[in-house]
Design a protein around this nucleic acid. Structure first.
Lengths: 354, 354
DNA sequence: TGAAAAACTTGAATCGATTCAGTCGATTTC
DNA sequence: GAAATCGACTGAATCGATTCAAGTTTTTCA
């Protein structure tokens, strides 16, 4: 076992300073006040005379004091970390959501414990365990499996949870997401508006709630059209670029007259894969032969060779809002769960302006 | 101030269970042993009789006991979190590196505190402060500014640090990176090999070490060519898709005969931006008129409309290795800093096979 | 059989921030 | 002038896991 102290001593002798982490007691001594006063300066400066505040702050400065979050947590004070369990860390959409949470976090001096599950329920559990051990202030989670009971247990331990990008069936937890049904509907309405009739939905697996919702919305649009139409479903095993390209290849393998003239992809990764595959003999079929619209509006959508139309999610805003709600709930355990739903926004680019 | 306990009580009465977090003392009582024994079961089961191990484990199971990491940390035990400060969280390359660190982390039951600095030295400092407060086991950092002194201070507090994707000038800290000079050289050698002569480097700002190194390597290749050539430098303000597209626009604005016939982009984001911009009147200039090679081989490189040649970095491996070294150093403060350098690998795709 | 060694177990002390009942003066009130 | 009020400060007790010197039981072997 390493003894940090002895290491510090070693450094002391070497550099002549005293880098043994200063405790609140050291600060109190140097400032000539009690530990209680130092703690008050740290936490409720308004209750301390300005003279004491100054002296304490000077001592803190001189000693390079840094608060020990472990001790703070232990005594029952609240933790200054929040866990974020992400479904697919590789997807820029989630990167953006995390970024939003981060932004809000730094404003409250909160750090984010990050966990990427890659749609693996086992990893999901591992991270929730880890976060429980850490006694985080709360957990943001873009869930894959069914974690209601797990979250319930965390709550019993005083750890709040907010669902991201999805809501809980029973409404027992707050959530921040986008109206996926509406998004699906708007996407397909747009395709119909630009005159497409043979519309396909590419996406899957359908046990991912978001996928289902987007398809459902697409169907609503199809039925409500002045001349109703059918949505063909081309199922994929995942929402990745590779799967998108594979789906594209399957489309191209059909006789020409069976091609759809527009595809609504379950997310932008799929759409990018499709885009890549829809080049025949150096000619890009998008948007003239086949229009494509995606979902999420990740940064790469605009940057694609044929800039991609997409349903924009306010991803950073989702992250920020989720963290804000989480902090509120952590502060007030009596608070009632609420659902926050943002509206997606249609972003038209070249892939659907043929 | 919220009193978690009272909330638990409320739940107790509601659900009839006792979700007050069980402590090691509760476990000891239930198992009929002392707290010391429970702690031993948790930390050195080989020193405890198998009967006790069983009883303790049963009690743990029954009570739903979860170790309190704060208490553990406080007593001087080691923390089970590690901080990771990332230069550009939006860049899939770093996402991958984090993923690698995560993989290694879960093997050691370690969670990652994540901080994205977006090349902002102020944020860099904020995160290092936060991590210090958390008393993390160590810090992985892809640094932007000069943080030698800051890291030195962390080290004095017993917090190890490993640089990622870059090494420290004075070699006082371990680092895991790729040989950027070699990568730049290989990229340009490849361009020369496919018969290109008017080669440009797109990248910047040059106070990012990696950029400098890659350019330096490119120049070595240019000088060593059988017929030496000059590398034109097209400077960008950042390594983003937008900047890449802007650089592309500047190239297209020139008279045709002043175009380069190949571009080595400082990273894949720039390359993708370039790719996007190099479509003139629906015709893709890549690779016939202008070949492009990037750096990093992010997943989107292969998925681009014209699949992008790139210098692959073993990004996950970098993350895993960095974390492994960090843990070793955290365990042994006497250990000496070492530099780990991986070789990049040339991945040829259509953007350079004209 | 008895003594020494080995194997386990115990429980008080410890880490550092927070809290809160209580102390101390100074000021105000009646 | 005594009592009440107020503001500022104090410091012992607390949280839970770990450690380790000391204690107890079991095993080993002459």
């Amino acid at each position: 076992m390493v003894k940090p102290k002895s290491d510090f001593d070693r450094i002391v002798t070497k550099e002549g300073r005293t880098p043994v982490p200063a405790s609140i007691r050291d600060v109190a001594q140097r400032a000539g006040v009690s530990v209680g006063t130092v703690s008050n300066v740290l936490n409720r400066p308004e209750e301390v005379s300005s003279e004491s505040v100054q002296r304490v702050n000077r001592a803190i400065e001189e000693l390079g004091y840094v608060r020990n979050d472990a001790a703070r947590k232990l005594r029952g004070g609240i933790s200054s970390t929040v866990g974020f369990v992400v479904l697919d860390g590789q997807n820029p959409f989630y990167t953006d959501v995390v970024r939003g949470a981060e932004d809000e976090g730094t404003r409250h001096n909160i750090a984010i414990l990050y966990g990427n599950t890659d749609e693996d329920p086992a990893r999901e559990r591992v991270y929730l365990d880890l976060f429980e051990e850490q006694q985080v202030r709360g957990v943001l989670i873009a869930p894959y499996g069914d974690i209601a009971t797990r979250l319930q247990r965390l709550r019993a331990r005083g750890i709040a949870a907010v669902l991201v990008d999805r809501f809980s069936g029973d409404g027992r937890f707050s959530s921040v997401s986008v109206d996926n049904v509406m998004g699906g509907r708007m996407a397909v309405e747009h395709l119909i508006e630009i005159g497409r009739r043979r519309i396909a939905f590419v996406g899957g697996p359908f046990d991912i709630r978001q996928v289902n919702d987007r398809l459902a919305g697409a169907r609503v649009a199809a039925e409500n059209a002045s001349r109703p139409l059918e949505i063909e479903v081309i199922a994929t095993q995942a929402m990745t670029v590779e799967q998108g390209a594979a789906a594209g290849a399957r489309i191209l393998a059909r006789p020409r007259r069976d091609w759809p003239d527009a595809v609504f992809a379950g997310n932008d990764l799929l759409a990018l894969g499709l885009l890549q595959s829809l080049i025949v003999e150096g000619r890009m079929l998008v948007p003239d032969e086949i229009a494509i619209i995606g979902f999420d509006d990740i940064p790469f959508a605009a940057a694609a060779a044929v800039p991609l139309s997409s349903m924009r999610q306010p991803s950073r805003m989702i992250g920020r809002t989720a963290l804000r709600i989480l902090l509120e709930e952590a502060a007030d355990p009596e608070s009632i769960a609420r659902r926050t739903v943002f509206q997606p926004e249609l972003v038209v680019r070249r892939s659907t302006s043929g």
